[in-house]
């Protein structure tokens, strides 16, 4: 077999790639057990990339890492410090506080259903859960630990090297394996069905009369952005919030002035557990949020025409809040498949 020149784009290379990627998805005869999570009706099947299957060992390792403060400079903060399970993996603060009490610019969002988000962060800057994890790790306002130091700590740990080796075919802690494990765990964070799902599935009695009235108003005034079972289009919109140069929203990503004040439409799943609200936690309660929309926003440049004065009656505002309060999602149980 002669050595094939690389510049001709040859068949041999293609064949080898095919067999190389074949190895990735399990060269051993026995497939390692994976986990499954049932998703609420109306959700698409849980998106899991072929590169990072939901192996039970990987998810368990990711869960342990997620709650381990070893990944912060002074070993005081874990991912779970700002993403608390009881608060649907948000943190109850207006803006997150990291290592040494440093306050960041933004509010920690819920991580429920994060596998479904096509983009991550309030400005949609990050594209993949795997690469996203390096941001809080290294951010001086969050965990403030260079990734090389994080990997050193894990390599010297009495248990982690073996857990990595098991979950990653012998590979120890690396940027890839660390971020894959964290991402695998986070993909299993899915909503268990709520009254909202039961109502959507035709169980009218799941909602009180007020909640039903609130949902009807929500459909009329809010659902063009907070759409479908996940209550978001995942698009980018300006909902009439005043921003500063420090955090101009999606403009930071696109460098386009028309994106100033534009944020990813957040899913409202679990919104009853994720106060305070908006990207910097400026609204303390759901009633304040509804007031913002009722006023028609602050009239910011570039505000969406769909945010306009609604002139709602007090009982109508209360009804919308009552509907939003039904969105009190808890994580669905995770099952290991035999």
């Amino acid at each position: 077999m002669p050595r094939v020149p690389r510049w001709c784009g040859c068949l041999l290379a293609a064949v080898l790639v095919a067999s190389a990627s074949g190895c990735d998805s399990g060269g051993s005869p026995e497939e390692p057990p994976e986990v499954s999570v049932s998703v609420p009706e109306g959700f698409a099947p849980l998106p899991v990339p072929v590169q990072n299957p939901l192996r039970a060992d990987r998810v368990a390792l990711g869960e342990r890492l997620f709650f381990d403060p070893i990944l912060s400079r002074d070993r005081s903060v874990s991912c779970g410090s700002c993403h608390l399970p009881d608060l649907a993996f948000s943190d109850g603060r207006a803006r997150s506080v990291g290592v040494g009490g440093a306050t960041g610019l933004r509010n920690a969002p819920s991580l429920l259903n994060v596998a479904y988000r096509p983009t991550l962060f309030w400005d949609g800057g990050a594209l993949f859960l795997e690469s996203q994890a390096l941001v809080p790790l290294e951010d001086p306002h969050e965990m403030d630990l260079p990734v090389a130091d994080a990997l050193d700590r894990l390599r010297q740990h009495p248990e982690y090297p073996a857990l990595f080796a098991e979950a990653f075919e012998g590979d120890g802690p690396s940027i890839q394996t660390l971020t894959y494990a964290l991402a695998a765990f986070q993909r299993t964070l899915v909503s268990a069905p709520t009254d909202f799902d039961r109502f959507r599935n035709g169980e009218t009695a799941a909602f009180s009369a007020t909640e039903r009235a609130g949902f009807a108003l929500f459909q009329q005034h809010c659902a063009s952005c907070h759409a479908g079972p996940q209550l978001t289009t995942d698009g980018f919109e300006n909902n009439g919030i005043v921003v500063t140069d420090e955090d101009p929203g999606r403009e930071r990503i696109t460098f386009s002035e028309t994106d100033r004040g534009t944020f990813r439409v957040p899913s409202l799943r679990a919104v009853a557990r994720t106060a305070p609200y908006f990207h910097d936690g400026r609204a303390a309660t759901l009633a304040e949020v509804v007031d913002h929309y009722d006023r028609g926003g602050e009239g910011t440049p570039g505000q969406s025409p769909r945010v306009r004065p609604l002139r709602l009656q007090p009982d109508e505002k209360a009804a919308i809040v009552a509907f939003l309060e039904t969105l009190d999602d808890r994580p669905a149980p995770v099952h290991t498949l035999p």
């Binding site: 962060f121 800057g125 990050a126 594209l127 690469s131 996203q132 941001v135 990734v147 990503i253």
Partner: peptide
Amino acid sequence: SMHWNWNA
């Protein structure tokens, strides 16, 4: 790093 991570 040569990747932004917080941005594509």
